[in-house]
Amino acid sequence: MVPGCGSISRNARGTPVTVSLLFEQTLNGLQFGVMLFLMAAGLTLVFGVMGLINLAHGSLYMAGAFACAGVAAATGSYWLGLVASLVAAAAAGAIIEVVVIRRLYDRDHLDQVLATFALILMFSEGTRWLFGSFPLYLDLPAALKGAVRLPGGIDYPRFRLALIAIGLALALALMWLINRTRLGMRIRAGEADREMIAALGVDITRLYTIVFALGAGLAGLAGALVGTVQSVQVGMGEPVLILAFVVVVIGGIGSIKGALLGAVLVGLTDTLGRFLLPQAFALFMDPSRATSIGSALASMSIYILMAMVLVWKPGGLYGGANGS
């Protein structure tokens, strides 16, 4: 045991829970959270401004990851790949907005769900067609390889730190865009009253395409970044999409601030739950049962969090009163 770190307990595998390990897991949770935010931001904006539920958002996340993998493999540059992920996902978003999504704004949610479900089928199968069904892996550039020694003697992967920094920077940039710029003013106005800003001479059709492409680009970038840590494969978007829904429900629809808070809450709950719950159960039951009960409960923890927020505030933390 590392002196000075303060042991709390031992888990089933005998790894001591130290303050430094807890710190590391907290960083992991934060990193997961900011990536979820990039995904949830587009979802909540598209819903808040256009009133559209977009299941195909996960496909844009996947498209970004594949664009990054493709371009990085062709050019050898990871950075070009990241740019490609942003551009390709935003372009794909703009295209599906103009061709399909635009026709769905004044339809009911059921039609939106079905049409975007159909888009998922087409995106997934189309990607499998182009890239095959084997997962792709991305190589990190030298600048992001290796680990950084943090205070407290923890070696933490440099790339994961970079993810936290990129995520937080983009969150701040997005809030600045929404709250301080003319485009953001229009987006907020579109959320409040779409007829009125159309009457004031804002080209609402173009505004919608921009908002959709913006959300798509962020999702694509998140896909590329997370795909670097894990792998790039067909179907990678949907689990994240559902987590992003949980984030949006917790944060309140249409609220960027809510999405950030919700995403960090979900990221921390999930990561720390997986880490701490099996050990907490090991305090009073035998290790193998503790691991299975603890991990089963941990996999449900964010949904329990969501249920609690709903009971307390049905419209989400930063949402309206009734949640409709």
Partner: peptide, 27 residues
């Protein structure tokens, strides 16, 4: 407790919760 789009997302999330429970419950 909610309607509309919230309802869609929440029912999806609860189903997903049961899905993950089934995956991680070894019995």
């Amino acid at each position: 407790r909610t309607r509309g789009v919230f309802f869609i997302m929440i029912t999806l999330a609860f189903a997903q919760m049961i899905f993950y429970f089934a995956i991680s419950w070894p019995a």
